[in-house]
Amino acid sequence: MGVSGCGKSEIGQRLATALDLPFLEGDSFHSAANVAKMAAGIPLTDDDRAGWLHTLQEQIRQATQQGHGLVLSCSALKRRYRDLLRAGNPALRFAHLSGPRSVIAERMAARVNHYMPPSLLDSQLRDLEPLQADEAGVLLDLNLPPQQLVDAILDNQGAHA
């Protein structure tokens, strides 16, 4: 979890590979209307995100019912969003990639062919509610090397071999 540009996709893919699990890119589940809105530099509202979050919750629920895990990249900016996702599997854990605005803005500006403009970073940072003490997960410094981040996530969930 984390704001756009924090590294969710890269770390998620690496984590999925390490765990031999499927990886789902949460952004690929956004509606065309949501993508168009973000591409136009308009922040999504809670109502805009509702259908998307329910779709992701269903992906989590299906994986749980089928008896396998998955790794999902999702901004999960607000506690209520994470609660909704957890309704798909109460054992869901979050890895929050966090770091300085300047680093994230630089990463966003360097991306090619991504619909999320750097101008939306401040709205995401404003909406962000960090993990709370009663939420299963780990807060990580996005400045660490990718493999170190993956190792920290594995260590935090007791899955590191």
Results as ranks from 00 to 15, higher is better:
104 I>F: 00
37 K>A: 13
113 N>V: 03
122 D>R: 04
17 T>C: 15
76 A>F: 00
65 Q>K: 11
13 Q>R: 15
126 R>A: 02
14 R>F: 03
81 Y>R: 02
93 R>H: 11
60 I>H: 01
90 P>E: 07
132 Q>M: 11
34 N>Y: 02
100 P>I: 12
151 D>S: 10
4 S>R: 12
22 P>I: 00
138 V>M: 06
152 A>K: 12
113 N>P: 03
22 P>M: 04
112 V>G: 09
50 A>W: 14
46 D>Y: 09
69 G>R: 06
115 Y>K: 06
2 G>S: 04
74 C>N: 01
100 P>M: 10
42 I>S: 11
132 Q>E: 13
2 G>Q: 03
145 P>W: 14
62 Q>I: 10
150 V>R: 08
110 A>G: 14
34 N>W: 01
130 P>D: 01
18 A>Q: 04
115 Y>P: 04
156 N>D: 14
18 A>Y: 07
73 S>Q: 03
70 L>C: 05
120 L>S: 01
26 G>F: 04
147 Q>F: 12
66 Q>G: 09
51 G>F: 09
143 N>E: 11
103 V>D: 12
143 N>M: 08
56 L>W: 01
80 R>E: 12
40 A>H: 07
57 Q>T: 10
60 I>Y: 02
108 M>K: 02
132 Q>I: 12
136 A>F: 15
103 V>Q: 10
35 V>Q: 14
91 A>W: 07
45 T>L: 02
142 L>N: 15
49 R>P: 00
127 D>H: 00
49 R>K: 04
76 A>C: 06
157 Q>G: 13
